[in-house]
Simulated assay, not measured.
Amino acid sequence: MERPDIYIASVGTALPGDPVDNATLVRRFRLPAVWEQWIDAFVGTRSRHFSMDLDTGRTLHTLADLGEAAGRRALDTAGVPVEDIDLVVMASASPDMLMPATVNVIADRLGINGVPTYQLQSGCTGAVQALDVACQMMLSGRHQTVLVIGGDSCAKHLDLGMNLADMSPHMQVNVMLFGDGAGAAVLTTRALADTPVLRRVFTRLQGRGREPGQIVRWYGLADRETPGEPVTEDFKAIENSAPGMAAEALHDLLADLDWKKEELDYILPPQLSGRMTRRVLDHLDVPGAEEISRVEEIGNTVNAIPFFQLEQILPDMVPGERAIGISVEASKWIKAGYAVEKPASKLEVR
């Protein structure tokens, strides 16, 4: 049986509030002014968006708020009624609560009901995992039009009273790296003219016998006073491993599709930080492809990242163009990727 094409009918994204630049972050956490230059040089991210008011600590947007906004934009752009959605898959490392699952809150708000819903708990490769799950279920023939959501709201874990200057570099760098946001895509097996196709999606665990590169602890009432920092990031290990893992993911996708580097029109690299993105791009060595990066302006939005990148390229792709996106997750070392192509010609069927 011939594999059906999976079309990316639309993408929608959402960011909370105004951008927070490095100078604002330095002032808010009472850091020496020289830190502004340190963030620019060491992290390479200029701004990010937070779901909380940094002055009061009040939550302004939940992850469900952001996911609903992104999902609604994707549905509206695709012109797809909610009644046509027959599966919802979401990825997040920071759901609003353990239960109910944030995916179900979003589905309820969008008016989606009576369909399977899945929520995946993962870091930077979670959105690609969600795309993979959606694609596998669509290829089974049981689902035709799917809403895939990815998003994170990490700011709710910030302690505005902490003395960041006295904390370890593991904690300091996390405050600088991450921003909040959500994205969504409508996928369909219904043939659409002038619409990019998701050619491949894959994820691979590479963490056997390796220490995690990132740990985020989850505290309950009984252990919330446990000593130690809630988040640790082995940035040196990530610097050493991420470029090579990204190159492996690119090689695997190219080999599977029988594509060549020089045939790529767009490269969507991992978005840990501006500095790391540049290092990864040097390692990928795809000089003919246009780099699509958003991390310098919106920070590392974790599971929202691929949707912001796709949102930027999809309107500009012309028939015959190809793009590859790569994700790397340090928590237990996962590499992932996806390939998009705009077919040279396709009849529209509605």
Rank of each mutant, 00 (worst) to 15 (best):
Y7W: 14
D159C: 12
D132K: 07
L66Y: 02
Q129M: 14
V186D: 01
P100D: 02
M317V: 12
L253A: 15
V175Q: 08
V133S: 05
V286I: 15
A9F: 02
Q136H: 15
G337Y: 09
S153V: 15
A182V: 13
D194G: 07
A165V: 14
E341W: 07
F50M: 13
C135F: 01
P169A: 09
D96R: 06
T145W: 02
T13Q: 10
A155F: 00
P230L: 14
A78T: 12
R350W: 12
D194T: 07
M99K: 03
R3L: 03
L257K: 01
V175N: 11
I334Y: 14
L160Q: 05
N303W: 11
N174P: 00
V20F: 02
G213R: 03
T226C: 04
Y266R: 08
I106G: 06
Q119T: 08
R275P: 05
P16K: 08
G141L: 01
R30W: 01
S327H: 02
A127M: 04
E36V: 08
M52Q: 06
T59D: 02
K346M: 15
D18G: 04
S331T: 15
L75G: 04
L314F: 11
R72G: 03
I106L: 10
A249V: 08
A330E: 12
K335W: 10
L60Q: 13
G299L: 09
L63W: 13
M276F: 09
R3A: 02
P196N: 06
D76M: 06
V105P: 03
P169N: 06
V201L: 01
K335I: 09
A289V: 03
M138N: 04
R322S: 08
V20C: 03
L164Q: 00
V173N: 02
Q144L: 03
D40T: 04
M167T: 13
G150Q: 05
